[in-house]
Amino acid sequence: DSMEVATENPHGCENTSDAEEERDSDNDVGPSKLGTKEYWEDAYQKELETFKEIGDVGEIWFGEESMSRVLRWMDKAKIPENAAILDIGTGNGAFLVELAKHGYTNLTGIDYSPASVKLARNVLQAEDLMDVTVKEVDFLNCEGELKGFDVCIDKGTFDAISLTPDNAKEGKKLYVQAVKDVLKDKGFFAITSCNWTKEQLLDRFSEGFEFVQELPTPNFQFGGKTGNSVTALIFKRVH
């Protein structure tokens, strides 16, 4: 087992550090298979089969640390246990499991991949968490289907949308609008990203959101420069 560098390496992260300086928030990281529905459907279908065979949940997006980081913030921010919480792009549902174990009772997970939804439901059922809602929803086109949330959490979904081959620019606009639509006034939005810097995210979510804080993430050194491979920010919805 080779020694691993102490950075979180999610299975959806493409290394973008080399071009980071030249890029402003509207230049795209370039299309990628990670931006396609087929890629995720295939990945979750495989994870679903594995889960049914051996009960292994598959990879945790951004690792366990990213989940505990958001949970620690929720504790500090005193998010009530009955707060309506939306997990955007729930994947295998692992974060919903953590939230439920942490005592949160009003949880919804969404994903546009049917296999992800099946997998997440299987994972929740295995944990005996039957009162967590998981829906197959395309977040960018959810036309008022979801609303009134106190907290929205995203680990890597905005990243994936930024990599979509068809129209990433439009996708990012739709995404920002969708978060605005589903959150209550003064509701919180927690985003973890490995493709965008703090500055780029602040720029992207400047309208309709107020920056609350940055959550500490591991630093790495690359070519003499210190940077963060993962950025985690908290915003508040303001009208």
Score class of each variant (00 low, 15 high):
227 G>T: 10
223 G>Q: 12
195 N>Y: 00
185 D>M: 12
214 E>P: 02
191 I>L: 04
202 L>Q: 13
221 Q>C: 10
212 V>P: 01
186 K>Q: 13
186 K>S: 12
185 D>C: 05
224 G>Q: 09
177 Q>W: 01
215 L>N: 10
189 F>D: 07
195 N>V: 02
183 L>H: 05
221 Q>F: 04
178 A>I: 12
190 A>E: 00
205 F>C: 04
222 F>M: 11
227 G>M: 06
178 A>W: 09
196 W>G: 02
187 G>E: 06
196 W>R: 11
214 E>G: 09
215 L>V: 02
178 A>H: 08
194 C>H: 08
201 L>H: 11
217 T>E: 12
216 P>L: 08
196 W>Y: 08
177 Q>T: 14
182 V>D: 12
218 P>G: 07
206 S>I: 13
207 E>I: 14
209 F>W: 01
202 L>W: 00
215 L>A: 06
219 N>W: 02
194 C>P: 01
219 N>P: 12
215 L>T: 06
178 A>F: 09
200 Q>S: 06
182 V>Y: 03
224 G>S: 11
190 A>L: 13
218 P>M: 04
186 K>A: 14
219 N>Y: 12
214 E>C: 05
220 F>M: 12
222 F>K: 15
210 E>K: 11
208 G>Q: 10
215 L>M: 13
199 E>V: 02
180 K>A: 07
209 F>V: 11
227 G>F: 02
204 R>K: 14
183 L>K: 09
216 P>T: 04
202 L>M: 11
225 K>N: 02
182 V>S: 11
226 T>V: 11
219 N>M: 08
209 F>A: 07
182 V>L: 08
197 T>V: 04
221 Q>G: 08
179 V>T: 08
219 N>D: 11
216 P>W: 06
205 F>S: 09
187 G>C: 06
216 P>E: 14
185 D>L: 15
217 T>L: 09
187 G>F: 09
193 S>Y: 06
192 T>Y: 03
211 F>L: 09
202 L>Y: 00
188 F>Y: 11
190 A>T: 02
226 T>A: 00
186 K>P: 01
179 V>G: 05
183 L>C: 13
221 Q>S: 15
195 N>E: 00
204 R>L: 13
202 L>D: 03
226 T>G: 00
178 A>Q: 14
222 F>T: 02
203 D>M: 12
182 V>C: 14
222 F>E: 07
183 L>Q: 03
217 T>K: 04
218 P>A: 10
225 K>H: 07
192 T>W: 03
206 S>P: 02
198 K>Q: 12
185 D>N: 14
208 G>Y: 11
184 K>H: 12
195 N>R: 00
207 E>T: 15
192 T>Q: 02
200 Q>V: 03
